[in-house]
Amino acid sequence: MIRPFYHYLMTERDPRKKDAVTLFANHAENDGSFPKQSEDYDEISAYLELNGHYLPSMDVFDEAWGSYIDKNSN
Rank of each mutant, 00 (worst) to 15 (best):
K17I: 09
T22D: 10
M58F: 06
D59P: 01
S45D: 14
S38F: 04
Y68Q: 05
S33R: 06
T22V: 06
S73V: 08
I69K: 07
L50R: 13
I2P: 10
R3S: 08
M58V: 06
D62P: 02
L23G: 06
A25H: 02
D14L: 03
L48T: 07
D19N: 15
S38E: 06
T22H: 03
S67E: 11
S73R: 08
D40R: 06
V60G: 02
P4E: 02
K36T: 07
L9C: 10
S67C: 05
H53D: 15
G32C: 04
K36M: 05
Y68N: 04
M1S: 12
P4L: 00
G32L: 12
L50H: 11
F5P: 01
D14C: 12
V21D: 03
Q37D: 11
E43N: 05
Y6W: 02
I2L: 09
D59F: 04
Y54G: 12
I2S: 10
A64G: 06
N51V: 01
E12W: 02
Y68C: 02
G32M: 04
D14E: 05
Y41F: 15
F34Y: 02
N74G: 12
T11N: 12
R3I: 10
M10I: 04
F24N: 11
Y54V: 13
D40H: 07
S67D: 09
Y54P: 05
Y41V: 12
A20R: 04
E49N: 09
